[in-house]
Design a protein around this nucleic acid. Structure first.
Length: 422
RNA sequence: GGAGAGAUGGCAGAGUGGUAAUGCAGCAGAUUGCUAAUCUGUCGACGGGUAACCGUCGCCAGGGUUCGAGUCCCUGUCUCUCCGCCA
């Protein structure tokens, strides 16, 4: 959520920034500023009236104490008018404040200066590419065929017990999943992240905190009876751990990592590109979350990018990094780098990590602040990134490491998997 | 699921109708000096003001009673204890 004072002072720059994601902010900003104006004027007026009636109440109290009940009672009559006015004003005040809040919820984050304008993923900017794309033998298969051939993943069993998009991993497939999770967590801990295990269901306030609500209501599974949401990413529970906290400067930066399953309804996304592991309702992910001082956040973002690069290098997978254009940028993000692995057998790039800086967009909603040296309270910047999303990493490994005789396991994973090939 | 207790500032913790004690931590200043002590101020949010400052709100949330509510009433949320059920 944008800060109202910033809209007031940077209106033109914000409008220009939001244009990059094809969001026309002009009229909504005008509406917001008008409401803000009304809100402040109402408060000033209301404050005055309350101040007067407080004075009278105090006087009445004193009169009663000194036994002058008659005078006190005549003063009581005077307060009736104040009461009526203040009731009206405070109704206006809360109506206006509520409306203001609702409008602010509908505005996405302002993209960083470096974000290119654009409408879709076509306009994303490739900024880095590394690794060799392997030349596969003539009968190379896509991962869903490999998964079947080597009995690693059973999609039909998942259909039977739950539905499409809920695969069952078995044998070496399941063990490889566990190896990847352990390897990713170890890498993150080595880089200074603290590991967490968090609930997989969260309440409504948490959904609002990180920005999934109200924007992506339909994308989360909702347990109606208990009014809880299945997490679409561990970003939600982890970042919300700090909701409402006032931190000391010396507690920052806070770096967390967690493995969780993630649940996404993916309503409306069907088609050729959702086969196999490409798009699932439940998948595993290891996540990074950072809470940092504002002046450090872009340096932290670069560090996170380098960290993910390091993992992909060790896995020896060909990858590229995209800077997302305005049109493809998530609602809450100011700058996002997507990592994609090249899937040779499908002959296309698969997104496996997304690393973002949210600046104060989430912390403003959650009121995550810290006290700086001069005791001033400031919102922290929040960042997160996947390290990594398992299914597509698995798809990339299966497809790129296949040979005529089976599938090799990347060397770095062998101590974790306990086997060298499939 | 049943019964009871509770929710007060960054933390701890008083306060049963007269307008939020006190302690700790933090910050600023003063002072004495040596791995720190003492004193004073500050120490939640919002609004107004260049500022000193002023005002309002704030005791889980939302309503109500009252001239006046942390305190009384209603509704809801959450936490804890005991019982029941159970991995």
């Amino acid at each position: 959520m944008l800060q109202i004072t910033n809209i007031r002072t940077n209106k033109e720059a914000y409008i220009a920034g939001l244009k990059k994601r094809n969001f026309d902010a002009e009229s909504i900003f005008d509406e917001i500023l008008a409401l803000d104006e009304t809100r402040r004027a109402t408060q000033t007026e209301l404050d005055f009236i309350l101040s007067e009636s407080n004075k009278i109440s105090k006087e009445i109290g004193n009169l009663f104490k000194s036994g002058k009940a008659g005078e006190a009672n005549s003063l009581k009559a005077k307060t009736a008018e104040f009461k009526e006015n203040s009731k009206k004003l405070s109704e206006t005040f809360s109506e206006v404040s509520e409306k203001l809040q609702q409008l602010l919820y509908t505005i996405p984050n302002v993209p960083h200066d470096s974000v290119p304008a654009g409408n879709s993923e076509e306009d994303n900017e490739e900024i880095f590419r590394e690794g060799e794309i392997p030349v596969l033998h003539g009968n190379a298969l896509p991962h869903w065929e490999l998964a079947k051939k080597y009995e690693l993943i059973d999609f039909e069993l998942g259909n039977k017990i739950t539905g499409a998009g809920f695969p069952v991993y078995k044998g070496k497939g399941a063990r490889l999943q566990r190896a990847l999770i352990a390897y990713f967590l170890d890498k993150n801990i080595e880089a200074g992240y603290q590991e967490y295990q968090v609930p997989l269901l969260v309440n409504e306030a948490s959904g609002y905190g990180t920005g999934q609500l109200p924007d992506k209501e339909g994308q989360m599974y909702h347990v109606g009876e208990d009014d809880l949401y299945l997490i679409p990413t561990s970003e939600v529970p982890i970042t919300n751990l700090f909701r409402g906290n006032l931190l000391n400067e010396n507690q920052l930066p806070i770096s967390c990592t967690a493995y969780t399953p993630c649940f996404r309804r993916e309503a409306g996304s069907y088609g050729a590109h959702v086969r196999g592991l490409n798009r699932l309702h439940q998948f595993d992910k290891v996540e990074l979350v950072n809470l940092v001082k504002p002046e450090e956040s872009y340096r932290t973002l670069e560090k996170m990018v380098e960290h993910v690069k390091g993992i992909l290098r060790e896995l020896e997978l060909p990858f590229r990094i995209l800077r997302l254009c305005g049109g493809d940028l998530g609602f809450t993000s100011a700058l996002t780098y997507d990592f994609e692995v090249f899937s040779t057998a499908q002959d296309r790039w698969l997104e496996i990590s997304s690393v973002s800086n949210f600046e104060t967009f989430q912390s403003n909603r959650m009121k995550i602040r810290y006290k700086d040296k001069t005791n001033k309270k400031e919102l922290v910047h929040t960042l997160n990134g996947s390290s990594l999303a398992l299914p597509r990493v698995l798809a990339g490994i299966l497809e790129n490491y296949q040979t005529k005789n089976g599938i090799e396991i990347p060397k770095i994973l062998r101590p974790y998997s306990g086997f060298d090939s499939i």
